[in-house]
């Protein structure tokens, strides 16, 4: 189980559910599936998820720019701690899954800051261009890179309109078992898929709330009763570069 790729696991999960229902048992499902060249032990992935990927959901974030303060970098720190990437003094090549952006209107001088990460597009260009299918979108809208299949061509980085992706330029150490990374592959915000799958919210959202800002809201965009869906229904919100029609899962309020 531990040596199959994320995507296979996702596919197999569906298959497994089917087999379970068909009474065929759990143990059979693992052998088929594509190519896996490097295996790593991964307890978080190896567990049998009780709740699989639910295609009726569309996970998303709402970022209230007014609540985000300029000198705060907590969401970035939280992500870095949670997922094991760090800014190591070489910002041109170090991975950054999430970054604080500052925009300024040159005419009025008005400034805003807010975090930008993978926008978990419903029509993700990174997935469209990826030659191997390593970039993929889960049924619940989370866009991921399967580090087992990624060949490191970086075409997805060329295609992403948000510069959300980083290429791992150096050998890695101290990886987190729940957030596998690999030299020579591309990575980006996973929406803390490991936390979401166990019913928690992403680390950035948690941290922002603990610090008393509450600028980030996580939830199911498809569920009209969720807080995020209600807020989206009530207030004006934006998608960055909405003109591209990518239908991002990350939305901004007061931007």
């Amino acid at each position: 189980m531990s040596n199959i790729s994320l995507k296979d696991q996702y596919i197999n999960k569906t298959r497994r559910d089917f087999l379970k229902k068909a009474g065929a048992g759990v143990t059979t499902a693992m052998l088929a599936s594509g190519i896996t060249l490097m295996a790593y032990p991964d307890p978080a992935l190896a567990r049998e998820p009780n709740e699989g990927v639910d295609p009726t959901k569309r996970w998303g974030l709402l970022i209230d720019v007014n609540k985000c303060t300029e000198d705060c970098n907590e969401c970035v720190t939280a992500c870095s701690q949670e997922n094991g990437w760090k800014l190591d003094g070489n910002p041109a090549v170090d991975s950054q899954w999430i970054r604080k952006l500052k925009i300024k209107n040159p005419k009025t001088g008005f400034e805003q800051t807010f975090p930008v990460m993978c926008q978990h597009c419903a029509n993700p260009p990174c997935v469209d261009v990826c030659p191997t299918g390593a970039s993929f979108k889960r049924a619940d809208g989370i866009v991921l890179v399967d580090k087992h299949i990624c060949i490191g061509c970086r075409y997805c980085m060329m295609a992403c309109p948000y510069k959300a992706r980083s290429f791992v330029h150096e050998p890695l150490e101290d990886q987190k078992s729940h957030a596998p990374r690999g030299k020579g592959t591309v990575e980006s915000c996973t929406l803390c898929v490991h936390r979401v799958d166990r019913g928690d919210q992403p680390a950035c959202v948690d941290r922002c709330a603990t610090k008393g800002h509450g600028a980030l809201m996580f939830g199911d965009l498809n569920d009209p009763k969720s807080e995020i869906a209600k807020t989206l229904a009530t207030y004006a919100t934006k998608q960055i570069r909405a003109d591209l029609g990518l239908d991002t899962g990350v939305r901004y309020q007061n931007l």
Binding site: I35, P131, G133, I151
Partner: peptide, 21 residues
Amino acid sequence: LGRPDRMIVAITTYNFKSIFA
């Protein structure tokens, strides 16, 4: 490539939406 050892993946796993493929 970042993972030239996976060339075989590039040749055997296709995403037909990708112009690269």
